[in-house]
Amino acid sequence: MPRAKSKKEEPVEAGSDVVMEEAPPSHQPESRDDMSVDQDENDGPEDVEDEEVDEEEEEEEDVQRVRLLPGSTPTAASFEFLNEGHTLGNALRYIIMKNPDVEFCAYAIPHPSEAKMNVRIQTFEGTTAIQALEKGLRDLQELCDVVSDKFIDAKEKFAASASS
């Protein structure tokens, strides 16, 4: 992927039409010629491009999985989670809604074939949607801790009653 992108950027810098240059596959040797010409003429942009490619590669390893959707205000924000679904969404919605400072919380999966989950949080004055989200995540973690401990207790109790 990064390679393809860097190729696309080149014609833009040369001031030519990206789509027309890239479209026919038979043009590949030609575009390679362009590249060598570019290198001969000036090394500056080449270097910049290399850096960009590097940055892109780093990015792909470490993609930001939560982002704030445009149009958000401190107390009313929408978040987009990548690679999350009903598993997290519904439980998170529930736990955030439990927070007395939260006026409204809902989640949606806008399209089933996109691995995206949106959460809308509206809070009362005095707290922010981001704080509410973070509190929700921590509360849910605590709930998991409690259930985990309770399950281990129950297992031990069951084992004791089964052996006696």
């Binding site: 999350e84 995540l137 921590r138 849910l140 973690q141 998991c144 801790d145």
Partner: peptide
């Protein structure tokens, strides 16, 4: 579940 949450936090 906790790992998911920890990652997001």
């Amino acid at each position: 579940i906790q790992q998911k949450l920890a990652g997001l936090i």
